[in-house]
Structure formats: C-alpha cells, structure tokens
C-alpha cells in the first residue's frame, strides 16, 4: 500500500485514470458464452432436429432486455415456420417461449440492418459453400431484468423440423440480447459445431465440401436460366490442362424420353473464369429445343474438352453429374 501511495505521489497525473480503469473493468465484465452444445451428427430427412445450447451469462450491469437466439440453417428447412425454441434459466421458472423476429425488424445497434442480414455480416455463414442458407432469429416473448455481478445459467432447447432433402450443412448458433445486439463481442456468442448430415431423398446437397460441379439455383425448373459451374481446382481431373471446356448433357423428359446435347459448339462452350474454373448459363427449354408439351425432369451431364474425347463426370469419374428439376 505504501508503495502504491508513493507511486501516485511520484505520478500525481495518474490518479484520474483509476476510476476510468475501474469503469472499464465493470463494462467489460459483461459476457455471454455458449459453453457447449448437444446436437446429433445426423438425422433422417423430415425428422425433428433436437439441439440444446448450454449458455452462461455473467453480468456486471443492470439490464432489461429480451434474450435472442439465432440459428444458421438451410433455407429449404423454412426454420421460421418449422423451428421451436424455448429456454430455461435460473432467473426464470419453467420453459420460456421464444418467437421469430419478423424479417425487416431492425437489430439493436445494427445500423438499420435486420437480424438475418446483421448476423450474416457480423458472424458469417459458417463456411457453407452454397448460398442457400439463412440466419433465423428468435426473441424471448418476455424481457428479463438482470442485476450486476451475477452469473446466470441458461439452457436453450431448439427443435427444428428438417426437410426431406439429402444434405450436408454447417449449422450455426448465436445468442445475444435485444438491447446490445452484436455491438461488441462480449454481448454475443456464436458456435459452429461442424458439418451436419441429413439422410434424405435425392441428390446430395453438400454445403460443406467444395464441389467439382455446382448448379445454381439449386432448385429450378426447365424454364429458369440455370448456371452450371465446373471447378477444376477442387481436385485433379482429366481436364486440368484443357484450354476449352464444353458441357455435354442429357435431358430426361417427364414423358420418359431423353434428348442429348453433346456437340462442342457455342451452345455448350463454357466461359473460363480462370484457375481452371468454368461456367455456362443455359436455358434448358431453349438448349433442348423443347415444344410446349415437353418438360424436363432431370439432367445428367459431363464436362468435355474441345474434341469431346475427354469426359469428366461425378467425382472426376465416368458417372455423370445429376440435377433434378424441382421447386421447394
């Protein structure tokens, strides 16, 4: 103590900094963390995905706010309609219901951005490689008052109905409050447990791993403009040294017939994007010259060189990539 007194006697100008440091410690003392998460590695398509978040909140300030929980999910799950979130805590009694924050509702301190946009900007997409993901935010139905210097334990129960789609996705979770939003890392916590699998129907929609071939939009009909991309940088293929790449595609009609378009010409020539990446935008009805009665059910396609002799299919092999025309 004598040493401290002597120090401030020698440095009188430092006295004013003491209350500032104490205040900083108090403000910086608030924290919310997702300590752990219980989530299965996979579920069957159409099943309910049960998730539990174990959250700790340390407060050093009085605050009255709603509790916010957000989930990063595939859009096709329609989590805003199919998700149910409740929580229990040592501040409350019984299950506390939560409700989806309507799209367009500005997030606190979010510069006018709504929660889904703000979460995407601040937290990100969890490394999902297809853009058909969304953050869905839920607020507790009630606001809760907390006092300073307390530790609260919160257990969040999330139940989301998955779609029947066969997919892999990197789920994400975020907790925060309706007062501070995502204004400072101490006020929110996020958690990405890794790649999650739904064993569903149809072609695998893989958000987790880079793909040799991707079709955008993921869901479309034959009257959409469809972008077929080939990324030769993902894995070595027989087209690594090709200076031109073409699409070779067979269209299966709903009638059971099929039409093949596999000539190397302007209709099938892919645009080079550099780094062995290629892209082609097609209008399937036009490419296959369909009449009014004809409709495509699915595609089976390869990528070829300019001669058509080198063909690259699924996984770089001899089987074709496939794409099914359907809407969500």
């Amino acid at each position: 103590m004598k040493k401290i007194k002597k120090y401030f006697k020698e440095h009188p100008s430092y006295w004013w900094k003491v209350p500032g440091i104490i205040l900083l410690l108090v403000i910086a003392g608030c924290s919310i963390t997702i300590d752990s998460i219980d989530q299965p590695a996979s579920v069957n398509g159409g099943d309910i995905l049960p998730v539990t978040l174990h959250v700790t909140i340390n407060t050093n300030d009085v605050r009255t706010a709603k509790f916010m929980v957000a989930v990063l999910v595939p859009k096709v799950w329609k989590a805003a309609q199919n998700g149910v979130i409740t929580f229990t805590s040592d501040l409350t009694s019984g299950d506390q219901p939560m409700t989806v924050v309507p799209a367009g509702t500005p997030a606190p301190n979010g510069n006018g951005l709504d929660w889904p946009t703000y979460l995407t900007q601040k937290i990100g997409n969890g490394g999902n490689l297809l853009n058909e993901y969304e953050w869905v935010a839920f607020y507790s139905n009630s606001a809760y008052s907390v006092v300073g210097n307390k530790t609260y334990t919160v257990t969040v129960s999330i139940r989301m109905k998955t779609s029947v789609d066969n997919l892999q996705f990197k789920l994400g979770y975020c907790v925060a409050n309706s007062s501070d939003g995502l204004s400072d890392p101490q006020y929110y916590s996020s958690y990405f447990p890794g790649c999650f699998r739904v064993n569903g129907e149809g072609d695998l929609i893989d958000f987790c791993n880079p793909q040799l071939a991707v079709v955008d939009p993921r869901t479309s009909l034959d009257n959409d403009i469809v972008t077929v991309s080939f990324d030769g940088g993902v894995a070595p293929t027989a087209l690594d040294n090709a200076s031109q790449v073409y699409l070779c595609v067979k269209g299966y009609l709903t009638s059971g017939d099929s039409i093949t378009v596999c000539s190397q010409n302007a209709d099938t020539k892919m645009e080079s994007l550099g780094l062995n990446r290629w892209r082609k935008d097609i209008w399937p009805r036009g490419l296959f010259h369909l009449n009014e009665e004809q409709h495509l059910a699915r595609l089976a396609y390869y990528f070829t060189d300019a001669t058509g002799t080198i063909k690259v299919g699924y996984g770089g092999g001899a089987d074709p990539f496939t794409y099914t025309f359907k809407c969500q």
């Binding site: 939009p217 869901t219 479309s220 009909l221 034959d222 009257n223 959409d224 403009i225 809407c327 969500q328």
Partner: peptide, 9 residues
C-alpha cells in the same frame, strides 16, 4: 418467375 417462384428475375 418463369420457373420456380423462389427464383425471381
């Protein structure tokens, strides 16, 4: 939307 309604042009 000429195809799926989710695709807007």
């Amino acid at each position: 939307s000429p195809g799926c309604t989710a695709n807007s042009y």
